[in-house]
Nucleic acid binder design. Sequence first.
DNA 1: TAATTTTGGACAATAATTGTCAAAGCAAAT
DNA 2: ATTTGCTTTGACAATTATTGTCCAAAATTA
Lengths: 106, 106
Amino acid sequence: MMSKKNNTSFGEYIRQLREDRNLPLRKIAAELDIDTSTLSKIEKNERNASEQIIEKLSEIFAIDKADLKVRYLSDKITYQLLDEEDGIEILKVAEQKIKYHKQQQA
Amino acid sequence: MMSKKNNTSFGEYIRQLREDRNLPLRKIAAELDIDTSTLSKIEKNERNASEQIIEKLSEIFAIDKADLKVRYLSDKITYQLLDEEDGIEILKVAEQKIKYHKQQQA
DNA sequence: TAATTTTGGACAATAATTGTCAAAGCAAAT
DNA sequence: ATTTGCTTTGACAATTATTGTCCAAAATTA
């Protein structure tokens, strides 16, 4: 189990990818078929990214889709728990539950 | 860090508490100031339980509120990730992120 | 300064959640 | 079998949240 360090938000991450390539929002937004301002907000974590958006982003930037999704969903959960006292414990319990479910279905 | 086993859902759990005391939905719902049918659905994990409901439930059943909240929120996250391939990894990454945030604010 | 990019606010349209009610289903009696 | 009390289900309007879209103001770059 290893720690790729991963402490940039989803939005920051895809913004970085875009800036590395010197592309304007306009271009990427067009490829994604969404409004420039919507993409701006996604990069600032002010709007959700749909499954479809995530998929297209992974194609555009030639990165692993599953990895991008992990970044996105882990972010959402993080924000959900950020104000909770017992955030870490909640995650641990959730992990047990997921393992339990996976085991059941197998 | 230890594993109280915890593999009953929030709904099942509070239903169990109620049934242990031989109380009808009607009574508890009245104390919670919600409809009987709403409580029925909460017990079947078909409706959300608000913060307020969780607090009152902890009072009614004389259990720890924080613990009940952990059960509730871990459940929600579990359901969110149940269909995801990488649920466990998502949780691990979220954990790192939360720890990072906590560390920053300290 | 002009051109381009980025941001923020507004808005209607759509979707999700909530509170509420009524009817139906169920089980245990009597 | 019918009543009685408990539980479940589906429906519905009302509220709240999210989405897609546009525009104009800021900020950045040339």
